[in-house]
């Protein structure tokens, strides 16, 4: 297998992390296989997507623009993807694990007669055999499974935030092509009649990728103001322990734990939270737990993979500075 496709579904604005991850997964696999990556952009995405796709390592960018692909519609998107994959003789097709990606992947696979695997955390290629080794966590992350695909075609939905994007090479060149597809508007069986963006101020806690959470140790609203600043910088949301909600420092809807929200972020940063079991119950799904507490014996450290023993009042402002510095360095 050599022909790797990264399927990108157009969205307003510039290319986002979701697309960058799909491109990166495709790039890494193609590297292993000694193959090449074609980015397929379905629908009218911003012009900059072409260059960005190239920057993330696509050798070829195929833009599928058709009047019927104005905004996402399931059946039309699947049909367009199918024709594109056939036209490009795609052997491995990566799709994002977004709502649309998960909708499209199985139907597309079926139409292509492709094997399909979702929630993949790694896909490694072997140039000698042309085989693809797929890693997929199962049983709620308690185990990993490994699958080996030796036959094309293959449709893979990558788990979001599972891989770091490859290094972006600004100005990289790629072959750009327009791909024509035949679409009949009558294929559409459903219509999206309303779209709602969740109110600003961070994602719903259940969905948040990053949660900065505070407890009784914060001592008041001012402490939470610091956490909000930090969360803003990290692109996360703010949660709390019951003790903090009880005190009225933050609304009860922020409570995380046995009798509050259950969350599964990538990062759970617990500040001034002792780690009572009722609280830990709510964060069992968190991938990384990091704690800040001035008491080194606090049970939260038994649940956390990293921790700082320090008063939050001095530590959080310092962390905010450190994060700003890091971001500035990265932006360069």
């Amino acid at each position: 297998m050599k022909n790797v496709v990264a399927l990108l579904i157009a969205a307003p604005g510039s290319l986002r992390r979701t697309e960058a991850e799909v491109l990166s997964a495709a790039r890494r696999l193609a590297d292993g296989l000694g193959g090449r990556v074609t980015a397929v952009i379905l629908g009218a995405a911003d012009e900059s997507w072409t260059a960005d796709a190239a920057a993330y390592g696509a050798e070829r960018v195929a833009r599928v623009e058709h009047a019927a692909l104005g905004s996402y519609q399931a059946e039309l998107a699947v049909e367009a993807a199918r024709q594109a994959c056939l036209a490009l003789q795609a052997e491995v097709c990566f799709v994002p694990s977004s709502t649309y990606g998960l909708e499209l992947a199985p139907v597309l696979a079926q139409k292509l007669g492709a094997a399909v695997v979702a929630d993949v955390t790694a896909a490694a290629g072997d140039a000698a055999t042309g085989a693809v080794k797929i890693t997929k966590p199962v049983y709620g992350g308690k185990a990993n499974s490994e699958l080996i695909a030796r036959q094309a075609p293959l449709v893979l939905a990558m788990r979001s935030r599972a891989v770091a994007p490859v290094e972006k090479k600004a100005g990289a060149a790629a072959e750009v092509m327009k791909l024509d597809v035949q679409l009949d508007a009558a294929l559409a069986k459903s219509t999206i009649v309303e779209r709602k963006t969740e109110a600003a101020g961070g994602a719903r806690l259940e969905d948040a990728r990053i949660i900065v959470s505070g407890g009784r140790g914060l001592g008041g609203r001012e402490g939470f103001a610091l956490l909000e600043e930090l969360a803003g910088l990290l692109g996360g949301s703010v949660g709390a322990s019951r003790a903090a909600c009880d005190q009225g420092w933050v609304p009860a809807s922020w409570q995380i734990g046995q009798t509050g929200k259950k969350v599964a972020p990538e990062l759970y940063l617990a500040v001034g939270i002792s780690g009572a079991s009722q609280h830990l119950v709510g964060i069992g799904g968190a991938k990384h737990i990091v704690a800040v507490n001035k008491d080194e014996k606090a049970p939260i450290f038994q649940a956390a993979e990293a921790g700082v023993v320090e008063d939050f009042k001095t530590f959080i402002p310092a962390l905010i500075q450190a994060v700003k510095k890091h971001k500035a360095a990265e932006g360069k």
Binding site: V116, I134, N144, L147
Partner: peptide, 14 residues
């Protein structure tokens, strides 16, 4: 179906 061609190589607890 097509997934029958996949080889289930291993299952382990990380």
């Amino acid at each position: 179906g097509p997934n029958a061609a996949l080889e289930f190589a291993s299952l382990y607890v990380p």
